[in-house]
Design a protein around this nucleic acid. Structure first.
Lengths: 191, 191
DNA sequence: GTCTATATTAAGATAGAC
DNA sequence: GTCTATCTTAATATAGAC
């Protein structure tokens, strides 16, 4: 591990390629080419494809947690924080139109592959779910907080899937507006 | 084509396997084994994997159209017909929990593979979309009919994705209830 | 730590007998 | 129309020199 930068470069390239091409369709050669190293060197850092996948999932987990912590600071009120989540559909619009949601598409693929890392990949969903649940609880919606968190997650997943299928940017904006209206119906008068 | 049944068996087996294991992860050997024929015989019926994919998409298109025609007959009112669509989340619950939505997961996979049949696979979505739009138009919601059709499609996609990720049957029932309530808010007094 | 071979395996695809 | 046998390619993975 004298050169952590090569390893980090591999994981970053794999992260992007798994998102754009899918896990199975991405070959070692693809990743090696993206990082501009030989396949031989590649195997010095990762023995198996599953090991890279685990490293990519670790990266996504820590990036997601960092983002949630950031939103926690940025948003004064729980409603503002939930809006941060809804707004990623707009912020990541360009990629979503091309490749869908990175979380949903990976867990879906790993499910079909019957891959043992599916549960770990799912933990990214769980981070969002628990964080959203916390915000809804802070709004006083304790009993419904988990159902509301799942509802928001599902809505954004559906938007990402259809926006990608039809390559429809206007649809994203339209649905984000509906989600904001929906959220307001739960927060009116509470701010 | 002296034995159409073998061909039909191949397409039916491929349809199921593409759904359960994904298109790329399904090998000719998998399909041949499911149909109990040799790989050599297999190639008599289909020259390439893409040809099987196209046949599977044809099958899904015609099955979907038949289902929509059936719903058109079954449902007296447009609202009842839209409820037929929402109810497939319940009817196909067992498979959705394991493999997600067959339409969404295939188009998502083909998008990542940059496969030329992606647009054709997407036509299944378009069948649902146009059919739902028609029902909303019949409800007098002409101007919003396409947005409402896309909204319903997105909601069901999101439910399928998360239900499969968390293997949560209760979540499906919960969201179907919300979708029914949502639909009622558009049809109150119109029946 | 990085490279150039090379081994191994699996899957798509074909040829030719019956 | 179905079979067995074989070809080809691509991808995972390893060995060993520098």
């Amino acid at each position: 591990m004298a050169s952590p930068s090569t390893r980090r470069n591999i994981v970053a390239a794999a992260d992007t390629l798994f998102y754009q091409k899918g896990f199975e369709h991405t070959s070692f050669a693809d990743i090696a080419e993206a990082v501009a190293i030989s396949r031989g060197n590649f195997y010095y850092h990762f023995k198996t494809k599953d090991a890279i996948l685990d490293a990519v999932i670790d990266l996504r987990l820590s990036n997601t947690q960092a983002m949630l912590d950031q939103w926690e600071k940025e948003g004064e009120e729980p409603k503002d924080r939930i809006l941060c989540f809804i707004n990623i559909l707009i912020a990541n619009q360009a990629n979503i139109l091309l490749y869908g949601c990175p979380v949903g598409t990976l867990t879906t693929e790993l499910t079909k592959l019957n891959h043992h890392s599916k549960e770990r990949a799912n933990e990214v969903f769980t981070l969002f779910r628990n964080w959203l649940r916390k915000q809804f609880s802070l709004l006083g919606l304790h009993k419904k907080s988990d159902a509301l968190a799942m509802h928001v997650l599902a809505r954004s997943q559906g938007v990402a899937t259809l926006a990608s299928a039809f390559h429809d940017e206007k649809f994203i904006r339209q649905e984000v507006r509906l989600m904001r209206d929906w959220l307001s119906s739960y927060t009116e008068g509470s701010i």
